[in-house]
Design a binder for these strands. Structure first.
Lengths: 195, 195
DNA sequence: CGGTATAGTGACCATGCGCCCACTATAAAT
DNA sequence: ATTTATAGTGGGCGCATGGTCACTATACCG
């Protein structure tokens, strides 16, 4: 093994490793050793780039928070095709099937990480609120197209949808829900309200 | 310290200790040592009554799951007084200010505990779904009294409300929301839909 | 070419975890 | 009164965690 030569950006390698672990094994498996092993580097590397493991996690969350899910965002930007409920179900499945939920669970459990992130975001980690903003904008676009009931308020409905999806996925006490399950849930829940 | 003499039921003492720890310090602080220390007993006691710590946690969750929150349940049973949104806000605050959220977080993180509970509840830990049932029944009663819009479906609205509350409380990335905050959120979210 | 800075290595450490088990103290049975 | 069963004790074990540090290998610079 060569040393001293950067094999791609180590920082990015570690972040990608964390992604894979979160999706494959869940938040409880995200230890410092798991990350460095998955990235194929020695333990020391992590501490050369970050002060400590929570520092790494904080940087990881910051990095992942904004580019939440390209697929879902793109899908929602193309408002007007498909049914509203179907689009929502697909987008929510994509977003909550990504690392988003795991990141929230992580922040819920690691007290030190949470404290550190609060310095950056006093109002709370924006992962879920940013999803809500995404959904809100989508619903506003749909209303512009007249595909929503006039009384349906995107501002209020968005957090409810995110909350429901978070409930479905974040629980994680059963098998992860399929896209079809989410679609049916979203259908049943908001069908009467939106159309 | 006398030994061999039961000082109240040790089982209940341990459960109460777990309650206190969850509410005071959060789910990450709920270790076996913390429980026995808080209960004022030696470490061995826990293993005399339960096979292992996850067995204790499973029994604890099972015990707490059904009698979720008397105050909120009683409040919701007395449908017809106050505003609908106000009643909901109060009940959700009471429920999510209790151990419910911490229990969910616990189950999310402890893989072994989650696996064990799945044997008992294949559909998932019923904490959140039971709250939804509670809310659903309340909304049904309110509709009976004509205090709900005819189109508002309790079956669909209940999980959305629970999800929203879970989102507000379960995040735990900021200060815990006050009852006033939840009231205003519930007001803003469902005000237009329900009345 | 030697010097220096930097990325990477992995044995090692302290800590806290769940858990074991030899032991003690009380209560109940004979 | 002796035995047996049961509740409670706490020192210590094995393990995984996050973190340190002396060391090595490479790249860059004069």
């Amino acid at each position: 093994m060569p040393t001293g030569v950067p094999m791609g950006d180590a920082r990015e390698r570690l972040f990608d490793a964390a992604d894979r672990i979160l999706l494959r094994d869940g938040p409880s498996a995200l230890t410092s050793r798991a990350v460095t092993d998955e990235a194929g580097v020695a333990k020391g590397v992590l501490h050369k780039h970050f002060a400590d493991f929570d520092g790494f996690l904080a940087a990881f969350v910051l990095d992942r928070a904004d580019r939440l899910d390209e697929r879902a965002a793109a899908l929602l930007r193309a408002a007007g095709s498909g049914t509203v409920a179907g689009n929502l179900a697909e987008a929510l499945t994509a977003v909550f099937g990504s690392v988003a939920v795991a990141v929230v669970a992580l922040v819920t459990f690691r007290d030190e990480l949470r404290a550190r992130l609060r310095e950056t975001w006093p109002a709370g980690v924006p992962v879920l609120t940013e999803i809500a903003v995404m959904i809100r904008d989508y619903l506003a676009a749909e209303r512009e197209l007249g595909r929503l009931a006039p009384g349906a308020d995107p501002e209020g409905l968005a957090p409810m949808l995110v909350g429901t999806a978070h409930l479905l996925f974040g629980d994680r006490t059963g098998a992860p829900p399929t896209e079809a399950a989410v679609r049916s849930a979203v259908d049943g829940v908001i069908g009467a309200v939106l159309v």
